[in-house]
């Protein structure tokens, strides 16, 4: 009985080691995948910033032009 317990607990310890390993693998993989997924949104944010900046410049010009037209 004592021996069976010992073997069982040994097995559990050994197996748990694999479980932990597998979990680490999964988290590492999923972390990478999540980062990969995120990265495309960063590009999106950058493009939107550019669009916003360029449109602000043009809207500013538009406003000034309208003012000039109104004066004349």
């Amino acid at each position: 009985m004592g021996r069976i317990k010992l073997i069982a607990s040994l097995c559990i310890i050994l197996f748990s080691c694999y479980v932990v390993n597998a979990q680490e693998l999964i988290t590492e993989e999923s972390r990478k995948a999540a980062r990969n997924e995120q990265s495309i949104y960063i590009v999106m944010a950058v493009v939107l910033t550019l669009m916003l900046g360029i449109f602000l410049y043009l809207f500013n010009l538009d406003k000034k032009l309208s003012k000039l037209e109104k004066e004349g």
Binding site: R35, N36, S39, V43
Partner: peptide, 16 residues
Amino acid sequence: VPLFHSIRNVFFHVPM
């Protein structure tokens, strides 16, 4: 360093 898709920023950030 892994840049993933953010390397595409090279097409927008650097031309600025």
